[in-house]
Design a protein around this nucleic acid. Structure first.
Lengths: 191, 191
DNA sequence: TAAATTTTTTATCATTTGTCAATGTTTGAT
DNA sequence: ATCAAACATTGACAAATGATAAAAAATTTA
């Protein structure tokens, strides 16, 4: 159904001057609705899809040496999410992809995605800009981790990505900050 | 001089099937030789150049809230280095770029770089793959920071980027790991 | 609505890491 | 070769964060 793609179309038209009449190009995207906590990819699987978030929230996480879940990335509406390393290389993924809210997603297969990127100038630019933006976010995360205390990181997150704190549980916020729930609980109290 | 570009040409031919006869495309790259500790970009400046390392080592770092230098990125031979965020946006850079060894570099202006990327399929692919690779490295750094102790991060670094430990001072290794020199010194002793 | 499960808070104690100061050691310039 | 500056190590102590356990609160499920 064409109008399943309204979210993505509007996003592309608004943000990337995508020609509205070329929505046929988007036919490789399929709508997927998932419940909160739904696992879209588990570790060990090869990541077949990239997801565009129309509504909701996704995270990527991994299990560390002590068996604890650690959240590497969180995204909300109008972002693409995937287990990058696996999606790019088609090797088994160390990371899992999970919905943290009931979510309306559009997914595209890896091969279709790269075909679009390789044959369509707008998609090529979109992908490049997505990678550049991902780099800026990753740089921010690294900077906070090597230069701030847990408290400073929390306050910084509240400024830079308030949605994370407002929409998600402390458990997931703590996991994203790289600290325990207990530490986060204390930080918030001391305020 | 054409043969100033031998390093880059060889790299592109070997790694990216670059047609050896098209080295004219590389004429926008200029050779720069710098001494250890040379600052190629200071914070507040707009990053004009991307650097390809023929020989030597570059880092990007910033000054944190307490006035301490924190190293976000380190690269050796055959890598491109830039203050990404500023290079992409042409806004003043928070980061500095510095040589950590006497280095032989090739630099290219931002506009020339993007022109190459936009007009040449191989450069476009090269840039995309560089961004993807940067994402994989950034992901690794984030993962280590949110899931490992300083000791574990050090051992992991020794495995994954031994050059950092072997070629650079403890001061810079500690800065890259996000810990103090004193902590690093103790970690190495207990090892 | 009640019970079960999950999440959050609180407290105590252990461990890791940072801070500061003093002392060796290396490096680089003259 | 000598001196000065930068770097590395060590020790004592402080601060931040983790681990564990228990209780309180919130959420989900039946």
């Amino acid at each position: 159904m064409q109008n399943n793609l309204d979210f993505l179309t509007r996003f592309l038209v608004d943000q990337y001057s995508f020609p509205a009449e070329e929505t046929l190009l988007l036919s490789k995207f399929k709508r997927v609705n998932v419940k909160k906590n739904c696992l879209l990819l588990t570790s060990g699987e090869v990541c077949q899809y990239a997801y565009f978030i129309c509504n909701g929230c996704l995270r990527t996480y991994f299990i560390d040496g002590k068996g604890e879940e650690k959240t590497r990335y969180i995204a909300f509406e109008n972002k693409f999410v995937s287990a990058f390393a696996s999606f790019i290389t088609q090797a088994p993924s160390a990371e899992c992809v999970q919905a943290l809210e009931d979510s309306e997603l559009l997914r595209i297969r890896q091969a279709d995605f790269y075909q679009l990127v390789d044959t369509n100038a707008i998609f090529s630019k979109l992908y490049r800009q997505s990678l550049e933006q991902a780099q800026v976010i990753a740089t921010w995360r690294i900077e906070t981790m090597i230069s701030m205390t847990a408290k400073e990181r929390y306050e910084n997150l509240l400024e830079r990505m308030p949605q994370v704190v407002l929409r998600l549980s402390n458990k997931h916020v703590a996991s994203f900050l790289g600290i325990t729930q207990e530490s986060l609980s204390r930080l918030k109290k001391k305020g």
